[in-house]
Design a protein around this nucleic acid. Structure first.
Lengths: 218, 218
DNA sequence: GAATAAACTTAACTCGGTTATATTTCCTGC
DNA sequence: GCAGGAAATATAACCGAGTTAAGTTTATTC
């Protein structure tokens, strides 16, 4: 066979992948991103430097691989929504579910290791920059799904593709702002429990604003 | 005196600054971003490598310095709007004015050197990433201005700061999409003249969407 | 015109990331 | 189960971005 998804080779590969990223993140958390060299990571993970870069395209990606998995999350939520459900409703419900589960991507998570990771992330410009490029792909995927979904009944005859792109960019931007806002409050010492109600209200407010527009600023 | 804004030293500094960035951009356009080394730029600009990095924090910034000037443009437009004018109206007018003037930041500019520069920019991931960090600062500045302006009469009692941030992120995202959309069409061979009407319509559509919300997708 | 401080150069260095080449390790077909 | 081929790895050397240290030039100031 040309591909064996459960072969020893593939299992080793996945194990190495995890070993590297876990070693990298542990070192980053311990000493800070800039203070850890890739050589150090390679030693900790017991692989050579070229192998390291066969698994991850850059040092930043060794910290951000978890986000790579969420890259098409928004698009999947829209694609998998129940018939008759509007895309925005599906996305709002998904975000609220994330809040309830204290999903780290919502920012509403005060687990010490998650908090430490977020501090690392937002305190390292090159990591934030790299994260933005993931977000860009997420936006593109969402735009694709929204274009497929098409606007509802009352839609004008405007360019579908452009409208989908505009909507996707706004949605992704709003989710980003909500998450960073939650994180900011957590990082200032609040705990997730006491913020939950506020975070839900913020999310409702944000999605309502998305739906009804920035008329208050018009 | 401790500072002399028109002294010889300051004039030399500005001249060196321009020399470096012009040499850098010329080389980038000629050979591509990755194919030019900073040593090469230093030689072309007749300065040493450490001096190069006293003027620009990174190789990317040598290409993007023009954008750094526009960093607080949106915020300034809102701050300088005529009394009684809504922020969104001021921003839409400003964008339309940019289209009419074929301002490169609107994407609607087919001057060969601008087109070549845009090709360079969007074709180089590290430049796009760096540009995103400028955009982030632009967003923050706009959020500050919007918070000062405050929403209009009909605004609910929601958190002003959060609302301003949400609005700013949406506005910046939409302007980015409009500009890249214009650029995409230009890069596919269209000329700015024949696209102008469409670009105006797109901008109107986008700002209308910002005002009235994504209800069609709700 | 001398003193001071900013800006510059040279040289050497660190570190992220790549390439070439040889070696090991897994898979496949007999 | 074993021979051949392919994928993955290691070693070593390399390139280029960005920094640092030490000494020199150049503008400003009194």
């Amino acid at each position: 066979m040309s591909e064996n998804p459960t072969g020893l080779r593939e299992r080793k590969r996945q194990r190495t992948y995890r070993t590297i990223s876990e070693a990298a993140i542990a070192l980053f958390l311990e000493k800070g991103f800039a203070a850890v060299s890739v050589t150090e990571i390679a030693e900790a993970a017991q692989v050579s430097k070229p192998t390291l870069f066969r698994y991850f395209p850059s040092k930043e990606d060794m910290a951000l691989y978890r986000f790579a998995d969420h890259e098409d999350e928004a698009a999947r939520v829209v694609a998998a929504r129940a018939g008759g459900t509007a895309p925005l409703d599906a996305l709002e419900t998904h975000f609220l579910t994330g809040l309830a589960a204290r999903d780290p991507v919502t920012g509403l998570c005060d687990a010490p290791e998650v908090l430490a990771f977020h501090r690392l992330l937002y305190g390292t410009p090159s990591l934030v920059a790299r994260l933005h490029s993931y977000t860009a792909r997420s936006e593109e995927a969402l735009a694709g799904e929204l274009a497929k979904a098409g606007p509802g009944h009352a839609a004008p005859r405007a360019d579908l593709r452009l409208t989908a792109r505009l909507a996707a960019s706004q949605i992704v931007a709003v989710q980003r702002v909500l998450a960073t806002e939650n994180w900011r409050r957590i990082s200032e010492g609040a705990n997730a429990e006491s913020l939950y109600a506020q975070a839900r209200a913020d999310a409702h407010h944000a999605f309502a604003l998305l739906r009804s527009g920035l008329a208050p600023y018009a």
